[in-house]
Nucleic acid binder design. Sequence first.
DNA 1: CCATTTCTACCCACTATTACCCACTTAGTT
DNA 2: AACTAAGTGGGTAATAGTGGGTAGAAATGG
Lengths: 146, 146
Amino acid sequence: MSSFKGQYQYSLDDKGRVNIPAKFRKALPPEANETFVVTRGLEQCLFVYPLDEWKKIEDKLRGLSMTQKNHRLFVRMMTAHASEGQFDKQGRIPIPAPLLQTAGIQKEVIIIGALDHIEIWATHIFKDYIEKSSESYEQIAETIMF
Amino acid sequence: MSSFKGQYQYSLDDKGRVNIPAKFRKALPPEANETFVVTRGLEQCLFVYPLDEWKKIEDKLRGLSMTQKNHRLFVRMMTAHASEGQFDKQGRIPIPAPLLQTAGIQKEVIIIGALDHIEIWATHIFKDYIEKSSESYEQIAETIMF
DNA sequence: CCATTTCTACCCACTATTACCCACTTAGTT
DNA sequence: AACTAAGTGGGTAATAGTGGGTAGAAATGG
């Protein structure tokens, strides 16, 4: 079971590749087979799952009904934007252009760990999000039962 | 079990052929026997099933009742538009003209993976669909229990 | 039933893209 | 200060995508 955490600043290169923090790469379980899946996230960012975690998502998606409009939409959003890949020798992954666009990524990105997955944000979007959300953080905490 | 994912841009050539992404071809299980079935999709697009997955659909269709008007309609829609075929040496499949028409495909297409099947969309229709759906995506996500 | 025409499937060649590899730079550690 | 590890950039070879030509099969008409 992965437990990604932390926040790292990187930049996208001309070929659409981003580095994955060495800490995260080392934390990958062997079942992930050096493979990850990037897909569209909720909020304007990208989710990166190690292969083993993605398999769990897939199983849940398969359980949805093809005849339900909302289910089809959800499956499409998750899968159509998903891209499976492997690290190159330097530990980078390629991000398909459509995903970069949906996440508003141009050059500067922030990569954060979120336990079972990694998130990639355009730096300025992430900063805005954190700032805006900071105000309601304590309030939202009230609604969450621990 | 197939697990198609990703999004690819291709163009229909003058002979009515479209390329199937190399990744998808490689992911075909041997049971599919290099064969696929294209049929009319839900929403304005085409569904492409590897033969083994299509067999499962057929089994479900057989389970429907011939005495129910809606069932007859559903079976007809799925089967009348279905076309079985194989890849040429370059990995392309021919799409019958009537299917192109129902999907509104002229030249530019987007091919997406949706786990057990592949979908072919006219590019502009797909973009409209995604844009329109993006608004409701997070909302729909809330209703789907993972 | 045969001849002609159209359509389809197969094959080849060109172009674009991707993935792999190597080298350089920067940062952190001893 | 030197060494090691991590991040960045770019070149090249292999692969994938596109377009078009030709031969065989099917359909149509005489």
